[in-house]
Design a protein around this nucleic acid. Sequence first.
DNA 1: TCGGTTTACTAAATCGGTTTACTTCAAGAG
DNA 2: CTCTTGAAGTAAACCGATTTAGTAAACCGA
Lengths: 335, 335
Amino acid sequence: MGKATIGDVAARAGVSKSTVSQYLNKRYQHMGQETRTKIEEAIEALDYRPNVLARGLKQKRTGSVGVIVANIMHRLSTEICRGIEDYCQEQNISVILCNSDEDGEKEKKYTEMLQAKQVDGIILLPTGKNGPLYESLAEQGYPILFMDRRVNNVKADTIVVDNRKAVTRAVEHLASLGHRSIVLATGPLTISTRTERTEGFRAAMRELGLDDGSGNIINAEISSLKDRLGKRFEEPEAPTALIAGNDLVLLEALAFVKEQGLRVPADLALVAFDNIPFAHLLTPTLTTINQPSLEMGRKAAERLITRIRSEEAPEAAEFVFECELVVRESSGQAR
Amino acid sequence: MGKATIGDVAARAGVSKSTVSQYLNKRYQHMGQETRTKIEEAIEALDYRPNVLARGLKQKRTGSVGVIVANIMHRLSTEICRGIEDYCQEQNISVILCNSDEDGEKEKKYTEMLQAKQVDGIILLPTGKNGPLYESLAEQGYPILFMDRRVNNVKADTIVVDNRKAVTRAVEHLASLGHRSIVLATGPLTISTRTERTEGFRAAMRELGLDDGSGNIINAEISSLKDRLGKRFEEPEAPTALIAGNDLVLLEALAFVKEQGLRVPADLALVAFDNIPFAHLLTPTLTTINQPSLEMGRKAAERLITRIRSEEAPEAAEFVFECELVVRESSGQAR
DNA sequence: TCGGTTTACTAAATCGGTTTACTTCAAGAG
DNA sequence: CTCTTGAAGTAAACCGATTTAGTAAACCGA
């Protein structure tokens, strides 16, 4: 037997579809207690469950949001997703998860797909490669929220961390241990996270009277990172400390350290962005810059859903979270 | 302006909705080239995108599948999700992600929600706490697929790894290094993964003429694991090797090792299930039993989608993947 | 030039709900 | 006894697509 419909329930309860619909939506004002009971029984007997497609078609709300992340395999993305999921679960909203793979085309395809699916809103960890798309979404008044990375010229809610402050703290921490030649390594400057960290780094170094020349800033593709590090170490004033811009950079840095037989922190102190799991189990344990990813995810979902439910779209806002510097063994005294 | 509908397109192209619908579904047989062009133009001009809710309502297919995992934060779950997502992306299917949190109630709520959403099928990493639910889904002929954990008495596709063989290899490996007192530590025996590993362990130990008594098997809640380990180490024939049943157990084991000041592998050799990230960066590097999680995820999606698309449901099948023992430093020679 | 095909297209029903506007009936007011 | 009002409920339109059954016009052979 096919699934029961509202019509079946109505027939069995001996009332009209309209009344059943009222019941389903908990509008009991115009309904006798008796009718209510009959409907309840019919629903129970038929194991009826409303078709949310049909409902969504009429109501123009589907109770689902889309999330597009660059890559769910990154720890940060996973944690953000979990935060989003947690909140949505409480609110009975379902989450459609998409991986853009840092590919602008996929990102575009996905936003279109999500809109076709009539999701009520989208949370985007943007690739940054679809400026016009972001703008048009925001202008349409479509509920959209950006995370982790800022996009320019787009009036939409944004949730990020204070990258400048985070990197400043890391630099100050290392400087306080006597480090003077500190290197920052990140991927190419294609997204706000990296540019902000780079700028923050430059400013902090200058502030402390340390070399702020570009020699200590490495913005390179992961694949050429070890090369670049190798070259830097051959130059005068070899680095005594390194800040890794994310988990992938850290992996390369650790591989470099291993190959060169460097000792941490004696030869090179290490600080890494991202909530590296096992940071406390590595030898030496690793100093990290943690992001409150779960809370950020929760906040994102909360903000988006509030926006969806409120009649008028509130002014676009930016929420800035603080990172936490967790000092462990890898950032030790300079020689 | 509200979004354009098929009616708007039809009006603008000067044809009927039916014709536009034919066009959308690429049934050009009964359509003049001229009409086709006009429709194309209208769609372009109005930036029309079909409403998949409406389509799904009529067609009874939504092009989306649900995935319920116990906890996305587990590395294994994340990887499985990624595999599923990859395949679905290729097939233009969207993925609704749910976290059951090992909570039977949530799992139930989610399956109901997914069915209400008319998803075409469900991939479940079951909590194991909803036997009747699993059965009824399978009996209804609803496309459902179980992963990672087997469920009894349910005729449905299942994707698992060969846990017995995996644990046997690990035991043999350790035995070949001279270890005679090997301990297996897992969580409580509530799911097939753990019981299979435990049984496989027992069999392998017996096969090798080693102590197969239950003294070397610890099935305990994570919270009491360190206690149990401590007690076992006070008994005669202290363990020289430990197999950790998953990543959480490993964390406890490592904490225990640290507290007790044990040296790995000199005092205790370690082997851990799951694709622990950083396994190759820990000191010593960690021997792991890797699961082909990405392929398993892909396979799951492929199988489910094939089943959805085929008219008749194929016979339920079980797909068993092999684990890979990756030997690193933590499993060294016994004293 | 007439009946039969083919081609190109359309009207209307349908999917399963929600919502609006209306009806019916009983009780209370005057 | 009539009029108003409120309670309880319903018929029908609607959401935006697909699909079925059918039609109008062109073409074609005899």
